[in-house]
């Protein structure tokens, strides 16, 4: 996965709660056997009309949000199905950071494993960033993962918390599997003990 250290750009405001992964990428686009190419179907059913034309009201169909790198949204973002196609679609569209008051568990895990940074902030901070995002092109925001800070267009900074392990993985683009393989001996000894105790497993 790509490293994540700093990002700045436009943030798309999406003030809705409980945005589920079916909305982020509807099931019928999961027939793909690749990770790429899903960006065009990101939020498909709220982004396009039935004839395939764009819905002009949808935020990502408006300038400058076509190039949004951030999404600012409401509670419980990413609930529903475990499909990793959701972060793949965000990434493929160009969104590398989502900021919300809370995220659903599986989506949270899936995102960091693909280099998408999820930032959880209290609602008051979200409200500020939502206002910034509404301002469009003149209101770029910036995030610095190392120092755990978001810089608003007016220069104000907001700090955020992140799990130390996730932070290291994101900063260094570390692959979890490689890290776990370093514990191979521990896994082997666990397995030997278990094979004796519960041979049916």
């Amino acid at each position: 996965m790509d490293k994540f250290d700093k990002l700045d750009g436009v943030a798309a405001p999406m003030p809705m709660i409980n945005c589920d992964t079916d909305r982020i990428i509807p099931a019928r686009f999961l027939k793909t056997i690749k990770k790429t190419g899903l960006g065009k179907n990101l939020f498909n059913d709220v982004r396009y009309n039935e004839d395939g034309s764009e819905k002009p009201d949808f935020v990502l169909n408006k300038e400058p949000y076509r190039d949004a790198k951030f999404l600012v949204t409401g509670e419980n973002f990413g609930c529903g199905s475990s499909r990793e196609h959701a972060p793949w679609a965000l990434l493929d569209f160009g969104i590398r950071c989502v900021i919300a008051p809370s995220f659903a568990d599986i989506f949270f895990n899936n995102s960091s494993k693909n280099g998408v940074l999820l930032i959880t902030l209290p609602q008051v901070e979200i409200d500020k960033l939502m206002d910034d995002a509404e301002k469009g092109a003149n209101a770029r925001i910036a995030v610095d993962l190392e120092s755990q800070q978001i810089t608003r267009p007016d220069g104000e900074t907001i700090s955020f918390e992140i799990d130390a392990f996730k932070k290291q993985c994101l900063l260094n683009g570390l692959d979890d599997i490689g890290l776990t393989e370093q514990k191979g001996e521990k896994i082997t000894s666990y397995e030997s003990a278990r094979d004796l105790a519960e041979p049916w497993l």
Binding site: S82, R83, E84, I106, N109, N110, K113, N114, D163, F165, D176, I177, L179, T180, E181, G184, I187, E191
Partner: peptide, 20 residues
């Protein structure tokens, strides 16, 4: 519990998962 595709790969390769 449900996992994502990266974790499917992780379980296949290591028979473990990283969890909190």
């Amino acid at each position: 519990f449900g996992i994502g595709t990266s974790e499917v790969e992780h379980v296949l390769a290591t028979q473990t998962l990283i969890q909190k």
